[in-house]
Design a protein around this nucleic acid. Structure first.
Length: 436
RNA sequence: CGGGGAGUGGCGCAGCCUGGUAGCGCACCUGUUUUGGGAACAGGGGGUCGCAAGUUCGAAUCUUGUCUCCCCGACCA
């Protein structure tokens, strides 16, 4: 993409409304603009990151056997009255009345809707297990939205729902998601720690939150130092026992959020670290909490109807954009992990008024594209300093600087954004090196 | 919802106390000179000061109301 044809409104100064790093940097890097409190427009650069995260989440859900659907944002109040949550959910739920006076709502979550789909279509234990997910915008009318997209009112979330005949099978489905989450966060370049969690309004008795550690996290967390060196599973076991083993490994060391922290239990554990955490995923197994009131049952082998055992599994996709920045930035800007970077490399023409230099940059740009490398090409007439500063701000993993000086030597300067390391690379070799 | 703060060109701010021609930096436009870490000079465009009432000869400035945004707390992917 040529910057001269792109839409990247960066800011040199810090907007007054943004307090924390990710919010500030997302505004400055031209990723988002606020519409109302906790509601954002995603500009091109931010949208690319959002889509990349979404895709990684999707791939890992698919790998774990979940099947993608897409449920609507607007739901009828009927189903919520059936589950009893229409009253329970309170003011956080945005309620809407349509022209016919029908009570509706902008979905804050989808347990009711998916349970309704399931009960209408699935009637036999032979069709189990099933895990259906979607990636959709949600709305929760938070009392106080803050921290940009990390705590917005409108947010993009992946939510999966598992259906099993027995509680034992349900735990297997839960474990499969647990492992998928470890893999997902690792691919996003994050160190996420599973912590036993309170089940809140979703309900149930088995639940883990996945938190990434960052100074600006919303809750205080305590965890065994061991987590910092644990590696996410590379292969996904295809046996229930294999899954259980991984879950056991990851739930054995002590880890708890403030509200679940038990100083006595922690005392017997390993070397404890405390810090602040950002919740990026939350999984629940809640048995028949919804299937019972909503009569979602299948016929078992014995011919008797049985309420299905359910679990639900959320990942805050839009929150992750902010979360990744919190975990990966410096004083100059964002440092994207390569897996979610909006472009892999930024090409800067430092001699935009020289025909030779521009021709060399145009050629290199075409070659990079031909090699399938995602490149943002700063072909504007801005000064060199402004180009460097902008590239650092938007945080692409690699920067190529090509100006009159390099043109003379047949070399470009390649900079690694994360390490700051700069190397001279022969222009002829640069594409090959980046493609590797 | 309780407590605190703020609304003045696109962004960051000053002016308000003590009412009297709306200002600065950045950004933007034109020209000239520059050109490897946010260039220089000259010229220029853009704001009914969140909104509404009130006080006054006169309101960005004083009074009242209202809306919005931000921060702290309780709540949350």
């Amino acid at each position: 993409m040529r910057l001269s044809h792109y839409f990247l409104p960066t800011l040199k100064e810090n907007p007054a409304e943004a307090q924390i790093a990710s919010h500030r940097l997302m505004l400055r890097a031209g990723m988002v603009r606020q519409g109302a409190a906790g509601i954002y427009t995603w500009l091109p650069l931010g949208l690319r990151v959002l889509k990349k995260i979404e895709q990684i989440v999707r791939e890992e859900q698919d790998r774990a056997g979940a099947i993608e659907v897409l449920m609507p944002t607007i739901q009828s109040a009927d189903l919520w009255q059936e589950s009893g949550r229409y009253e329970d959910y309170g003011k956080e739920m945005l309620r809407i009345t349509d022209r016919h006076g029908r009570e509706s709502l902008y979905g804050p979550t989808n347990e009711e809707l998916i349970t309704d789909i399931f009960r209408r279509e699935v009637h036999s234990y032979k069709d189990l297990p099933k895990n259906l997910y979607h990636i959709q915008w949600k709305f929760r009318d938070e009392i106080r939205p803050r921290f940009g997209v990390m705590r917005g009112r409108e947010f993009l979330m992946k939510d999966a729902y598992s259906f099993d005949l027995t509680a034992e099978d349900g735990v297997n489905s839960y474990n499969a998601m647990f492992v998928a989450y470890l893999r997902t966060f690792a691919r996003l370049g994050l160190k996420a720690i599973p912590m036993r969690a309170d089940t809140g309004p979703i309900g149930g008795d088995l639940s883990h939150e996945f938190l990434i550690i960052a100074d600006t996290g919303e809750s205080e967390v305590f965890f065994d130092k061991e987590f910092l060196t644990m590696e996410a599973p590379v292969d996904t076991p295809d046996s229930d026992a294999g899954l259980q083993k991984i879950v056991d490994t990851w739930t054995k060391p002590y880890a708890a959020t403030e509200e679940m922290h038990d100083a006595d239990k922690a005392a017997g554990a390993g070397e404890l670290v405390s810090g602040r955490g950002i919740e990026v995923g939350h999984i629940f197994f809640f048995g028949d909490k919804y299937s019972k009131p909503m009569k979602a049952s299948v016929q078992g082998p014995d011919g008797k109807p049985t309420n299905v055992q359910m679990g639900s599994y959320g990942i805050g996709v839009s929150r992750l954009v902010g979360g990744i920045i919190e975990a990966s930035h410096d004083e100059n800007g964002i440092i994207w992990p390569e897996s979610v970077a909006p472009y892999k490399v930024g090409l800067m023409n430092l001699g935009a008024k020289s025909e030779d230099c521009t021709a060399a940059c145009d050629t290199l740009y075409a070659e990079l594209q031909a090699a399938g490398i995602e490149v943002l090409y700063d072909d504007t007439k801005d000064g060199a300093g402004a180009k460097f500063a902008n590239m650092d701000l938007i945080g692409l993993p690699w920067q190529i600087a090509l100006g009159p000086r390099g043109l003379k030597n047949g070399a470009v300067e390649l900079k690694n954004r994360a390490t700051g390391e700069k190397t001279e690379v022969a222009t002829a070799d640069i594409v090959k090196q980046l493609a590797a």
